[in-house]
Structure formats: structure tokens, C-alpha cells
Design a binder for these strands. Structure first.
Lengths: 101, 101
DNA sequence: CAATTATATGAACATCTATTCATATAATAC
DNA sequence: GTATTATATGAATAGATGTTCATATAATTG
């Protein structure tokens, strides 16, 4: 890839980075992440909090989990989701800072 | 919006936040941002560096500028683009950190 | 076991988006 | 003025993506 200068990360890394931000780039997923900002919640509670269907929330939780932005544990019939680590808080926070200029 | 608990930012803010991340969520735009990480470049140089058409780069620069991720100045026939502020560096860096786990 | 509750999944559809192509604008050189 | 170079823009197309609907899986209760 001689078009890239020395300081450019590998193309695959930049692709993965874009994929990561793409996950944050949907309002439903952002809302879910903020629901989970400082607590864990089960799927039904998230759906109710956001006024969305269980199915839609579940689909998006799958995306969030595949990208390691949330983790989950089962408790009986319920699955409790929470933010995966502090990077998620940081990224959301940086985004907010930029919005506020 | 009584479905939201007290700590949730307003829905409009969360929407704007998602829109911001959406801008970072495209590999072409991420590549452009990394090209500009520590230097300013004109459109043609960015296009050449990435092996893309001028038109495609120009369209994406417009998106980046509309969202205040880059700024530009004219010098003769050329337009030189650079990152708008340090938030852009921070957000890219946080994303990278998350990728590296 | 069957019934119920909670969640997950697959397919279909509608919407959004990035690129390409053609063309327009802007600045310079002659 | 015209020609050239650099960039921007509008329309069209192709591909990606989020929601809905129907259904499947999983755990509990009786």
C-alpha cells in the first residue's frame, strides 16, 4: 500500500475502526448504551424504557455484543446487559464533548 | 418522555450523538481523517494518497466539514483541509484503544 | 408433561448512503 | 477574453442496514 504514508495505520485497522464507530452511529444503539450507562438492565426493561419492541432491542443488543460494547449474564429467564468496559463510557463522553463544542 | 429515566440525556441529544458517530463510521472518512491526523492536505493529495477519485473524496469532505470534523482554507486553486480540533484526535484515539482492547 | 414468560433469530421490506458520472464553479495562466 | 487546473455539486444506482413479523429457543411454573 504505497499510497499510504508511514504514519497511516494499516487499511484493515482503519476499516475495523470505522466498523466500531458505525456501531455507535445509530440512535437506537446509543439510547441502549445510555440506558446501561451506570446500571444493568434486562431486555424487556430496555425495550420499555425506550418505547421499542423487544425484537428491535434484541437485534441491536446482538450488534452491541458482537462488537464487545456490552456484556450480558443470564438470571433465570432474563438476560441482563451492561456496558462491557470503560472504553464505552469514554467514547460516549468524548462524543458528547464534541457536540457541546 | 417519561419512558426515560432521569439520567438519560434528551432524545435529541442522543440522536445528534449518533449522527456524530455515524460520520466516523465510514472507512473512507476514517482514512481521510487519518491522512489529516497531523498535517493539512488538499483534495487531490488526499485522493491520490487513498487511491480514490477526487469526486468521492470531495463528497466525504463535505460530510466531514458539515459535522465540523475538518476545516479548510483556500490557497489559490487548492483547498487545504485539516482536522477541526483536538476532539477528533481524541475520538479516533479512544476508538483505537477499544480495538486494541 | 403443557403453559407461560423472556429472549433470540431469520426473512422481507423500506430506508438510507457511498460511489460514479456528468457537469458546474472557482482561480490561475496565457 | 480562452484554456487549464482544482474542487464542488446534482442525479442515479447499487449496496448496506434497521425494523417488523413470524417463529424458534430457553427457563420456569404448575
Amino acid at each position: 500500500m504505497e499510497e499510504y504514508d508511514d504514519r497511516m495505520p494499516p487499511e484493515e485497522t482503519l476499516y475495523d475502526l470505522a466498523e466500531l464507530f458505525k456501531v455507535f452511529g445509530d440512535s437506537t444503539r446509543v439510547k441502549i448504551l445510555y440506558c446501561l450507562f451506570d446500571t444493568e438492565l434486562c431486555v424487556g426493561d430496555i425495550a420499555q424504557a425506550l418505547g421499542m419492541t423487544q425484537t428491535a432491542v434484541s437485534h441491536q443488543l446482538r450488534v452491541l455484543k458482537a462488537n464487545k460494547l456490552v456484556k450480558c449474564r443470564r438470571d433465570g429467564k432474563s438476560m441482563f446487559y451492561s456496558l462491557a468496559d470503560d472504553h464505552v463510557h469514554s467514547i460516549l463522553g468524548q462524543g458528547m464533548d464534541h457536540l457541546m463544542e
